[in-house]
Design a protein around this nucleic acid. Structure first.
Lengths: 212, 212
DNA sequence: GAAAAACTGTGACTTGAGTCATTTTCGTAA
DNA sequence: TTACGAAAATGACTCAAGTCACAGTTTTTC
């Protein structure tokens, strides 16, 4: 038997969900809340396995509630209820520890499926939500096309070490060079990349993922 | 009429795909290739709208081919053919510009759907593939839970500017402080975070996404 | 085989960065 | 009310970093 907490401010939607969920005899809604704060209170009173959480709510929204619940009860699964327009929230929700997404327009069959897949440790994400989220996630991890970095292999190696926060002395030791040579290379690198000092170079290295 | 290039080394799979695709009268496979290199050659000879690309192939794999095709023909759509075990490649493929993923086990209805959604500019990603990829993507953009960064607001502001590569003088100007004060704060910050110099601090700032 | 680019090194010089001691002000929590 | 941490500042000191000029060696490229 899976014990579920329903968090959703609109009573009608909540009722509908409850009925759909309890069509499956292994699933039971043993608590309901109208906003995040109430959800936290219910969590303390009941043994909850899974929370179904709306994002837009008064008092405390779903993101904050998700974060706080995951802090105190890391093993509880959380499914986010979402609409097509919530995609910027969705990414944040995932970072906060959500285990999946339900479109409000989903039919009950998908709903039940999502609950079980999420309880099994998987991640339940509706196809359309994923399609919207992925490009957003990629933007951040992309901006480094590794193209046209006009550095020689030696310069790259030094850039990498600068990006790890090493001093010239340490770099010299690792590469078996003199400190003076390292300095010369760095002068060269800064000129090529139009940077001012090793700090800007380190930032460059991290952002362009020069870590090989 | 949508012109399609099929890239897949196994002739049987290729034949099957072709038949499934051409069930739809708007879709036509006008070229086929057994590996990435051949695909590039075919691209030059035909006007292609969409490429369906396997990942594991001899001579030149699907990732490299995707990258090269997107470089020369940025408007061509590319759908990656994948299995459940390819998820580490999948992320890379997306970064290289792929427009979607097809599971090799998908039925023809899903296949056709994916092609159209991809041509409309959307991203076609099978639910199960997305579920596997998202956690992987999140790991990279996550590691900064913004928690326990024991810095005061002032220190945070300075850390942020260091992370932008600013000098103490510039930071002092922005925050209306003396250079000495900035130095003092930085000494304090370095001690708190157990770092050695502003370069390591800048790296810390970038990695923890302190950019507010 | 010659030219170009990459790699290595030295020494001298300038300056930004970081540490330390010490002081003052301000708000807030015990 | 007191005590404390955050914030701001000054001055003096040390040193790593960066620039510059010059030079030798090796590797790549045409």
């Amino acid at each position: 038997m899976i014990h579920i907490l329903l968090v959703e401010d609109q009573a009608l939607v909540r009722q509908g969900l409850k009925m759909m969920i309890e069509q499956d005899e292994q699933l039971q809604v043993i608590a309901e809340a109208e906003h995040g704060l109430e959800a936290l209170q219910k969590m303390e009173k009941h043994m909850i396995d899974l929370v179904i959480m709306d994002i837009r709510m008064p008092v405390m929204n779903g993101l904050e509630a998700t974060r706080k619940i995951k802090e105190q009860w890391p093993n509880v699964k959380i499914l986010i209820l979402t609409t097509f327009n919530d995609d910027e929230y969705a990414v944040q929700a995932l970072k906060d520890g959500a285990n999946g997404f339900l479109l409000k327009t989903a039919e009950q069959q998908k709903l039940i499926q999502a609950i079980y897949s999420c309880m099994r440790g998987g991640m339940a994400i509706h196809e359309d939500v994923a399609a919207k989220m992925l490009p957003r996630l990629l933007e951040k991890s992309k901006q480094a096309p590794t193209t046209n970095i006009p550095l020689t292999p030696r310069e790259l190696a030094i850039t990498k070490l600068v990006g790890e926060g090493k001093t010239n002395k340490e770099i010299a030791a690792v590469l078996h060079l003199s400190v003076g040579t390292v300095k010369n290379h760095i002068t060269q690198i800064l000129q090529k990349l139009d940077l001012r000092d090793r700090t800007q170079l380190a930032i460059y290295a991290v952002k362009h993922d020069i870590t090989s």
